[in-house]
Nucleic acid binder design. Structure first.
Lengths: 335, 335
DNA sequence: TTGAAAGCGCTACCAA
DNA sequence: TTGGTAGCGCTTTCAA
């Protein structure tokens, strides 16, 4: 890190002075607002001056004056970046938060401080907030954000969240599809692998519920199998396999499915003959397992459609429809 | 989405009016600045009014006035969130960018618009920018950000980036360690699996170089094996295995290693007897393979130390030292 | 074709 | 203990 003293940031006044024009003119030229009315020579002088000074407009001042903002906030749960980096970011956030900083980007806050999160975002007066896992969108959070003039709130959720554009995705349905599939393969005693990792409960619980409901409706048995993301835990589970007498298992996702499959095979349990196994998320690794892993695949909505929706909503128009998330069972060899 | 009209955001003037005090007093109370000098009764009235109005301070106005900001920007490459979501976010970004929005959060811009990215961040006048993969930290970008008053720039890189707090991590070293390990296991003809995915080149190329250099120094052979993240590609590679006559392979990471191991085993190539195989990143899945996968493990720096460093740097003090990233070979059964 | 000036919401200096 | 007020950097209306 060089410690050469840094010149203070150039303002539009500095640019104006160097170019020998008024701030008005600078603004017109740089924003192309009244450009047609400014002579080419002046335009060139202003541009040159801006470049020379390394001028960068001050977003805060601009949005303060404009009364609005073109920033879209996309906070994200640390689970999305995997356990190693996720943990790192989470702790980094905590450290910075403790020092009084707010963070825009990876590894969002714990779901605990829900309306705190909303408040932090509201302070930034963004045009939109896209909270993947719904953090910050409690009723109070939504109220707060809307009253702060945030134009569009978007999330993924099983049922419409009031005041929020909800991309419908019912995690229950993942469990339902998996259970339906297992039942159609003749299974009558189902197990559901549920991760013990705390952050995942939000996703795992509904998947479990889906299996329960479907099994109950078909008069089949279903039970929950808690699992740590470790070999030991999987081994312990596999050791109990005889007494469990399960003929079909839905694992939270393909990684947990792989974990269990390995343990079952090591314990001499044949998949799928003895126990059928299906995962979720359709990771490549599922195709590399032997037997190849059946899975429930998620189909994300069209990003461009979503972008257009956000824009529409920010501009105060009511979008006609919100895209949905799709699901499909991919049958391979493990079921 | 309810379409109930939203009241305009409350300002500190609104709070002052409702509480029957001046804006000064509101500011003092809410920020605890001169709190000691404000009567408890007044404090309570102000707090009550703020709550009733759902008042949220306007970060832009505040940082404009204060001349500084407490925001840390952590843009992130979409690779980090996996291929499915990564692709989704990347396209969402593009869509929004096309509509004139700037995005803070997941799935940053392509490395192409490097100084564009820096300019976008500079406009926000954040206290710090932590760019994991160094995007935006070209010499021009750094200059731009520093001149815009950004207090701390942090990144991971193999050698100190001028003007940036660099958490030293030499990806070359990953290749070096892997190659050293393979050589120590008696391998003389090394292969290096390099992903064809474009975003990964930044990381894969140095790892390859590390192997080349180490092999050359030991008088051993090393060659590059391009691989798509698909089964077909791995199968095709395995089919050429006889002619390649390699006795040791370093795969870009554990996932690619798993991909190759599967293909090799399907082709009847014994690992490690015929060819030793080592991955990187120490993912759980490596421990689930048979044989268990050897790997090069990354040891991230202490997040709290990093947070403290950022704070120090923002406050204009020169931190004594920047934490480093560590590496270690984890030997299992595949080598 | 260009400039002067008001004002966005907030904080902090100075006065009362 | 509290209030008046200036000014952060920018855009935009109105006037020249």
């Amino acid at each position: 890190m060089t410690d050469r003293p840094i010149p203070p940031a150039a303002t539009s006044s500095d640019v104006a002075r160097l170019a020998g024009v008024s701030r008005t003119t600078v603004s017109y030229v740089l924003n192309g607002t009244g450009s047609a009315r400014i002579s080419a020579a002046t335009r060139a002088r202003v541009r040159e001056a801006a470049l020379r000074l390394g001028y960068v407009p001050h977003a805060a001042a601009r949005s303060l004056r404009a009364g609005r903002n073109r920033m879209v906030l996309m906070p994200s749960p640390s689970i999305l970046v995997g356990p190693l980096l996720g943990e790192f970011f989470l702790q980094l956030h905590q450290g910075l938060a403790g020092l009084g900083y707010s963070i825009a980007g990876l590894g969002g806050p714990a779901p605990a401080d829900d309306t705190d999160a909303a408040r932090a975002w509201a302070e930034l007066r963004p045009a939109a907030v896209f909270s993947l896992d719904g953090t910050g969108f409690s009723p109070e959070g939504v109220e707060l954000l809307r009253r702060s003039g945030v134009g569009a709130l978007v999330t993924f959720a099983p049922s419409p969240v009031p005041g929020v554009h909800t991309v419908l995705h019912d995690p229950t349905e993942v469990g339902t599809l998996a259970a339906d599939h297992l039942l159609s393969r003749g299974c009558r005693r189902l197990g559901v692998v549920v991760p013990r990792e705390p952050g995942l409960e939000l996703f795992s619980r509904p998947r479990l519920q889906g299996v329960y409901a479907t099994a109950a409706a078909a008069g089949a048995h279903a039970e929950r199998l808690d699992l740590d993301y470790t070999e030991e835990s999987a081994r312990a589970l596999a050791a109990r396999w005889h007494e469990l007498r399960l003929d079909g298992v839905f694992a939270y996702n393909d990684e947990y499915a792989m974990l269990l499959m390995r343990a079952l095979q090591d314990a001499g349990v044949d998949v799928p003959a003895r126990t059928a196994l299906i995962g979720a998320d359709d990771l490549l690794l599922g195709r590399l397992l032997r037997p190849r892993l059946s899975t429930v695949r998620l189909v994300l909505p069209d990003p461009h459609e979503l972008a257009a929706l956000i824009d529409l909503s920010v501009r105060g128009e009511a979008p006609s429809r919100v895209p949905e998330m799709g699901l499909m069972v991919v049958r391979r060899e493990s079921t």
